[in-house]
Amino acid sequence: MGETVPVREGLFTNAPGGEVRLVGGRCTSCGEHHFPRLPTCPSCSSGACEEILLSDRGSLWVWTAVTAPPPGYRGEVPFGFGVVELPEGLRVITRLTEAVPSRLVFGQPMRLDVVPLHVDDDGRTVVTYAFTPS
């Protein structure tokens, strides 16, 4: 897809030839994780959060498909939309590469990927993270 740019810096790693990982936070006070990375722990309000790369594998917890373009969205529809449960004890809102809900089942293994959204004014492909059946 030529030159790519992430939909938001700091959301996920996507170095050429490198692995795709979500950038989250782990609280050194209560031990809970969060995503995206925040300066303050949403579970206990501690400021002692460290940046970590979250697991790129998880299981499907709930899903649907978006059939009409939501506000501000310039990409294609339909696309899958759901929540994937990560081994860190975290549930993450995510796009899914599968847009037909009946092809997915509860608890099925998923892995992280990067998908194109739209081409920006500079001709670069804007990309975001998504989970795909593994």
């Binding site: 959301l11 969205y73 529809v77 975001t128």
Partner: peptide, 22 residues
């Protein structure tokens, strides 16, 4: 929603309703 969530298609209000329904 923050702008990036709109760009990513994650500002889909009915989709959140749908996930609760599921």
């Amino acid at each position: 929603f923050e702008p990036w969530r709109e760009d990513a298609g994650l500002a889909a209000t009915p989709a959140y309703f749908a996930l609760r329904a599921q």
